[in-house]
Every structure is written in C-alpha cells, then in structure tokens.
Amino acid sequence: MDFPLLAVLAATLTIATPLVWAALGALINERAGILNLGIEGTMYAGAFVGFLTAVTTGNPYLGLGTAVVAGLAAGALMGLLTVTLGVNQHVAGIGTTLLLVAACDFTNRLLFATGTQQAAASFERWFPGLGVLAQYPMTFVAFLVLAPVLWWVLRSTGFGLRLHAVGENPEAADAAGIPVARTRYAALMLGSALMAVGGSFLTLSLLGSFTLDIVSGRGWICIALVIFGRWKVWPVVAGALLFGFTDALQLQLAITPMFSGVPNELLIAFPYLVVIAALAVWGRKVRYPGAYLTPYRRA
C-alpha cells in the first residue's frame, strides 16, 4: 500500500490552521493571566459572523473583517466580566461560550429557517497544483506571519513584556506603573480576535458554508495545546501540527480500504485522545503563569 504522505502533510497544515490562530489567541490571554473558556463560543461566533457577511456581501475579506470585530467584542465582554468585575473565570468563560453559541444558532435559525443554506464566497487556495503548498491564504499568514510576529512581540516588545508582567505578578507590574487592567483588556481583545479568525477559517476557507456545531470542541483542543506548549509560541504551533497530523491521518485512514472496518467515530475521536495522552505525558509539572485565574485589585 503506498501511503499518500504529501496529501496527509497538506491536510495537516490545513487542519492545523484554525488551531494555530485560536491557540495563539488563547496563549495571549493566558500570558496575561486569564483562562478564556469563551474560546469555543468566540470561534463559533467568528465562523458564523464571517459566513453571514460573506454570504450577504459576496466578499470573504469583509467576512474576515467582521469576524475580527466579533472577536474584539467577545474579548471585551470577557474583559468586563473577569478584569473589571473579577468574576470566576471558568464561569465567565463557559457563560460566554453558551451565550455566543445560542445567539449564533438563534440568528442562523431566523435567517435560514427554510433550511436552504447558501454557500458563501470563500477564499481560494493559493498555488493550486503545488502539492503541500496548495493552501488557503490564512494558512500562509498563520505560519509565516502570525507565529513569528507573535513570538517576536512576546519576547522583544514592550507590549509583550507588559503582558508577561501582568500575568506573572500584577502587584509588581502595577508598582512599576504598568496599567494592569488595560493590558489585560488588550490581551483579551487581541486574543479573542485571533480566535474568531480561527473560527472564520472553517466557514470562509474550509467549508464555504456554516453548519451547527461547526467548531465541535476545537476551542477546548486549543486550551489543551497552550498547556501542552507551556505558553510558548513555537511549542503551541508544534502541538497544533501534531493534532492536525493525527486528524489528517484519521481522515486518510477513513478512506483506506484496510481500515474500513474501524468505526468512523473512533477515528474522529482519535485526535482528542492523542491530545489528552500528550497532556498526560508532557503536561505534568508545568508551571502556570503566576497570576493564572486570579483577578487583580489593589490592596
């Protein structure tokens, strides 16, 4: 049996793309000390809002833009709850996810009640016919622009260091004159915008349409990838590629005659189990950001 390695590698990059966007967004949030469980809903909102705009305007770039706006709004909501009010981050995040998913499904039902879902104008693959390089624009942006730039921003710019400071020790950051609340808001809004872009990749690039439960737990995968990657950019990207590879492998196996006896659902579940196993092996004794899960107020 000749194994179509190039096809699997190409699919790996495509599948990893939304995870790179969203997981790096979650990384920015958590570097600032906030666990954003709104990620699943934010990705969902990005996917839906982007799709809706692309359907009505026929322009996927506008869809991308409105997805970013939706992400910024979701981040601001999380900021209001966790930064300004200091609500328990687990509850705020799950509540945000439930609200955003319900709101999108409600709107979807209102607009497309008849069930005739239109196909949105979507991004075309660049370099068709070039094998592994035949990817969507956002894939190139994710790996060649977003990851290196974010890596540089986090280690070498004032914003990156301030982010680190408010996530590790907000008291010291405050004493040094860093506006803790404003920095955390910035982190939440920027990170949520990246999550929404990741979600919009599903509708605007991959599928060209919107289906219910389209994110299906990818947000939770991203939260796991950030822990697995120990809050560092390149390990998180590597984790996304690992998940992308197992998912691409499972898609390939599903159409391989030898594995036709294996239930499809087992194959789909396989990447989730790989992530849990990877956490169990490499997730021990990780050092969380110092101010993880804790709101900051002046004494």
Partner: peptide
C-alpha cells in the same frame, strides 16, 4: 500528575458524543 481538570473534562465531552 496535577493536570488541569478543566481541559481534560472538556476534551472528553466530544469524545463521549462520538462514542
């Protein structure tokens, strides 16, 4: 192993549905 329960419990939800 002190692995955050939030992530693992969340990840097992889609797995249960797939099962």
């Amino acid at each position: 192993a002190h692995i955050d329960e939030v992530v693992t419990t969340l990840l097992l939800n889609p797995v249960a549905l797939l099962l």
